[in-house]
Design a protein around this nucleic acid. Structure first.
Lengths: 315, 315
DNA sequence: CTGTTAGCGCTTTCAC
DNA sequence: GTGAAAGCGCTAACAG
């Protein structure tokens, strides 16, 4: 592996000039700069990360800590990870993945945190490095999130546009900010149209949603759309309707939320509010890298818009 | 952050003695060793990874490279990742996640590779560092895999034990080793029992499996079990049967493969052959760390057994 | 603009 | 057993 010295000798300059060419190119005469870049290329020079880390007293490692149980974890984390990893790699940062079993191990320059619970905040507060949350956070930390409120307004508006007259919101049985925002989005939009808002909360499992449909089947009139807070619920709802002999999308519409692979398991492809997870991961990484470079005092919130992906479960 | 020097001064020894206490404790007088450990503890001394990496010319980074498209990627990678990450963290190694968009970026001490295609082997061969594959590999590289052959034999045996008389294997339409092993497992076991083996191959999507059931419904007799090569297919099969008015598990059994969250979306909880993904990740990481410490010439194969997780889709 | 010096925290080598 | 010296590859600070 070529070193700074190798490049310097071959280019007949000192190490410093080469170092500067990399880190402060504007301080080097253009011609010299060009030849040095040329030599670096010839030698396939790659800066040694360890040496850099040593002198700059930073690790070039970012930790993503996922506090949720992995086996109940949403599969969409993979997409998020891909977004984060690619952005970090572009800046020669490594991603260290930590779970609640290993979150204290090793050093890093910053943290991306997700799935956090109240009891973890003591640990977060004592961290020296910058922190970015994934998902809204009310304790003043920076975060990246989707606009849950607007997303549900958009789903609901779409359902109305497609002529479904009765709308039911199938929410997740949890008092989390994301769920409250979604419900509020639904309620507000329905109120604006002078419509009654039916909100149901279920545990986030397909079979629970199917059971719900089975038990309440007699109450649903044709031209009903179900706006669901997750794809799991949406698939369960759709299964239930089909099992009861209901027609999707002719008489009943179903809209999901998340838009991951889950919809590949449904018998029909699901209309769903797709979260741009890779973009969100990228945004989180970018924000963190900015903060690592120069810490910013104010809370920064990045809200990313979701888009409705229309498929076969709505007409 | 305390350094080697801080510890040395406080303990009235030279840096070297402290360094030795860490790396070659047998070369240090026991009493001295004890006091030095004591001081390290008092100062909460953590060796600086960058400095170590610099002098030992290793990065303490392991790269996991996923060559598949992320958006068609199985969600179960998350579990795998968790297993790898925890094992690496225990040894103070960082995991760098790379995708096919970023696989050339940055240095590392070893690779875990998955989802690789023929065109990537040229790149693999040119790597200097040790490599472990995830999933069987026929080119002589080390790998960690499940015993696909045995797993399907076990599923099939279970279905026969539960009294299903007709068995149909629903495979994935791909000429990959894992699929071939699974089909072979099914065929061999059926032959042993003197039964005819029906093997169907479908694209790995729920709705494709549902369509298959719809089209062939008249052909299936009660007491048929479907041994599926993925949970997606299994869920699609189950959906199809239920839509046709078939009874699961009384008349028709369905067994999946993989056992991830996917089964949380099904209307009934799926009986499935669960791959111990976290253990597999851990095994891959362990094997790679061994090879990093001292390269081994022979190919090493680690085969991990899957276990049937029995739920509501079989009687 | 470019080069020299010093040092980041650690380990290897060689004395004592 | 223990210590002193040198150096891993790089960059910040100062000189020229």
């Amino acid at each position: 592996m070529a070193t700074l010295n190798d490049v310097a000798q071959r280019a007949n300059v000192s190490k410093m000039t080469v170092s500067r060419t990399i880190n402060h190119p504007e301080q080097v005469r253009p011609e010299l700069r060009a030849t040095i870049f040329q030599v670096m290329h010839e030698l396939n020079y790659q800066p040694n990360a360890a040496a850099r880390a040593l002198v700059s007293r930073c690790t070039r490692v970012v930790k993503l800590t996922i506090f949720e149980d992995m086996d109940t974890t949403e599969p969409y984390y993979m997409m998020l990870l891909a977004g984060i990893a690619n952005e970090l790699n572009r800046h020669q940062y490594a991603l260290q993945l930590a779970t609640k079993n290993s979150y204290e191990v090793g050093e890093c320059d910053g943290y991306i945190l997700t799935g956090i619970r109240d009891e973890n905040y003591a640990w977060v507060r004592q961290l020296q490095q910058p922190v970015v949350f994934f998902g809204r956070n009310l304790q003043g930390y920076d975060y990246v999130d989707t606009d849950n409120y607007q997303a549900i307004r958009d789903s609901t508006t779409y359902a109305l546009q497609r002529g479904y007259l009765h709308l039911i919101f199938i929410g997740i049985d949890a008092d989390k900010p994301f769920e409250l925002d979604r419900e509020r989005g639904f309620r507000d939009l329905m109120a604006q149209h002078g419509l009654a808002a039916t909100v149901v909360r279920l545990a986030n499992h397909g079979h629970v949603a199917t059971d719900y449909i089975n038990q309440h089947w007699s109450e649903f009139e044709p031209n009903t759309a179900f706006i669901c807070a997750s794809d799991r619920l949406a698939i369960g709802i759709e299964d239930g309707i089909l099992l009861q002999g209901g027609r999707v999308p002719a008489d009943f519409g179903v809209i999901g939320f998340d838009g991951m692979l889950l919809n590949q398991v449904a018998s029909k492809r699901l209309t769903t509010m797709k979260q741009p997870l890779e973009a969100m991961g990228q945004a989180a990484a970018k924000l963190l890298l900015t903060k690592i470079k120069q810490p910013q005092p104010a809370q920064e919130k990045i809200i990313i818009k979701s888009n409705l992906s229309v498929a076969e479960s709505t007409r």
